[in-house]
Amino acid sequence: MKIVDVMRSRGTTDVVTVQPTQTVTELLSVLAEHGIGAVVVSADGASVDGIVSERDIVRKLNERGAEVLQSPVSEIMTTAVHTCTGEDALEQVAVLMTQQRVRHLPVLRSESLFSIVSIGDVVKFRIEQLQAERDHLVDYINK
């Protein structure tokens, strides 16, 4: 199975982005509006300049206090972003996310931002796969 299969089962490749110049307060509004925990930072909607998560915000709030809310996203984002492609194997991506302790990976197509996949997407897809395999085996045994 590949990451493209996960995106297909999810039904969307939509990805929310913010610009590096937007404030952290604006970022918080975007996260709340979309009910998501991380967002790709992109000046043009196609490049991956960084990624920022709720965890990044909390850590910076602890370090710098409420003044961080008026700071640009570029000051708190992670710039060393791990990415994948739709053709990457599901297991390979799961290992990468676990080893690097990241919950979200931007998905690239031809070096441009295409989608984003979360560890929740990966786990949900894998559980659905295992349930389908189990159901198939039960049907086979009962015949």
Score class of each variant (00 low, 15 high):
residue 75 E to H: 14
residue 45 G to P: 03
residue 112 S to T: 15
residue 64 R to G: 11
residue 51 I to F: 06
residue 18 V to Q: 01
residue 6 V to Q: 10
residue 102 V to E: 02
residue 23 T to V: 07
residue 66 A to G: 04
residue 45 G to A: 06
residue 75 E to R: 13
residue 35 G to L: 05
residue 139 D to K: 12
residue 80 A to M: 10
residue 135 D to P: 00
residue 104 H to I: 01
residue 39 V to P: 01
residue 23 T to M: 07
residue 16 V to W: 11
residue 106 P to E: 06
residue 106 P to V: 07
residue 1 M to A: 15
residue 99 Q to N: 15
residue 68 V to T: 12
residue 78 T to D: 11
residue 75 E to Q: 14
residue 134 R to H: 11
residue 22 Q to E: 15
residue 69 L to G: 04
residue 16 V to N: 09
residue 47 S to I: 00
residue 82 H to V: 12
residue 17 T to K: 03
residue 60 K to Y: 11
residue 28 L to T: 09
residue 3 I to Y: 11
residue 91 E to F: 13
residue 24 V to K: 03
residue 103 R to L: 00
residue 49 D to Q: 10
residue 4 V to S: 15
residue 61 L to M: 13
residue 39 V to M: 01
residue 19 Q to K: 12
residue 12 T to F: 08
residue 94 A to S: 10
residue 45 G to H: 05
residue 40 V to D: 00
residue 20 P to L: 06
residue 55 R to K: 11
residue 32 A to Y: 00
residue 98 T to M: 14
residue 31 L to N: 01
residue 24 V to E: 00
residue 60 K to Q: 14
residue 43 A to Y: 02
residue 33 E to Y: 04
residue 109 R to W: 04
residue 33 E to M: 08
residue 143 K to G: 13
residue 36 I to P: 01
residue 78 T to Q: 07
residue 132 A to E: 12
residue 74 S to I: 01
residue 5 D to L: 11
residue 109 R to P: 00
residue 76 I to W: 05
residue 83 T to R: 11
residue 71 S to W: 15
residue 58 V to H: 07
residue 78 T to N: 12
residue 135 D to S: 05
residue 117 V to S: 03
residue 4 V to G: 11
residue 90 L to N: 08
residue 59 R to L: 12
residue 84 C to V: 15
residue 136 H to K: 12
residue 52 V to C: 06
residue 58 V to F: 11
residue 24 V to W: 02
residue 15 V to F: 05
residue 136 H to A: 15
residue 138 V to D: 07
residue 57 I to A: 10
residue 91 E to G: 12
residue 69 L to H: 04
residue 78 T to P: 02
residue 111 E to I: 02
residue 114 F to L: 10
residue 58 V to Q: 12
